[in-house]
Design a protein around this nucleic acid. Structure first.
Lengths: 144, 144
DNA sequence: TATTGTTATACTCTATAACTATA
DNA sequence: TATAGTTATAGAGTATAACAATA
């Protein structure tokens, strides 16, 4: 079998761990888990409020996990949930003003981490990395 | 702030999730968690028995998590633990014959997943991906 | 009858601290 | 006194199934 260094999931994990190890302390300062941050980022990227299902897809969280997280994030006033007008099963979820403030507070520290990455990888290499990662993510999308 | 598509941790996660989504069912068939598989892979890559600390480093698992996992994997006869001769605090951990058999059973299915990746990425692109991932993993290694 | 989201439940892993044995 | 590993404990996320409300 391929060596451990030639395991793509491990290589992806190592890279992610390395980046996140610089970022996790920042999140911890603000009492955010990685997963909560993913939700906040997803919501702040969307200009439109969206459904729980949509967030689950974007963030790779399961429905039940997300459901509990949304409750606690609503309690912390980081997000808002309002009944959807056209489908009463859904609720429109959006980032709150406080949530946006938190994202803006963290953003510059995040950029500092990206600065470190930019020291190691040129702009075109970073582009290339994103491209290769996207194409890896698309494997098996056509079939099944 | 950068869009969600331009988040490197998310791009890494998407790629990893995509690969693992093809692989997780195979592990589930053999009652292995992702983390247990990481330990098995690490041990099967090492020809020498090694310490728990070394495995923890290689697999990105915390000591306490690994400790419990090793106990259950020893109960399942997937690994062996023998007292180290030169340092009584350590134990030498190695993959068992049954563990090796399990790895060999899973290996061809793993290769099938790599075949899919090879359909999407050329050999040189895959090399390039590994290189970029490794350089990303090395950020901040020099300082601190 | 299918879908959206929540609740229930069991299990695994994370994370930190405290502890034991050894160096 | 420091290190390797285990145990203790609390908490968060994963995963599946069951359920409610709505479509």
């Amino acid at each position: 079998m391929r060596g451990f260094e030639r395991s793509l999931p491990m290589a992806l994990m190592r890279a992610r761990e390395s980046v996140m190890s610089h970022f996790r302390p920042i999140l911890a300062e603000h009492d955010l888990t990685e997963q909560q941050w993913r939700v906040l980022r997803a919501l702040s990227a969307n200009d439109q409020p969206c459904s729980a299902g949509h967030i689950a897809e974007q963030t790779y969280l399961l429905g039940p996990s997300l459901s509990r997280m949304l409750t606690s994030m609503e309690d912390r006033d980081l997000i808002t949930r309002t009944a959807s007008s056209d489908d009463a099963r859904r609720s429109d979820i959006a980032i709150s003003r406080a949530g946006t403030r938190l994202v803006n507070e963290i953003a510059p520290r995040s950029e500092a981490v990206y600065q470190r990455i930019s020291d190691a990888l040129s702009a075109s290499e970073l582009d290339q990395l994103y491209d290769l990662l996207e194409r890896t993510a698309d494997i098996g999308e056509a079939q099944s």
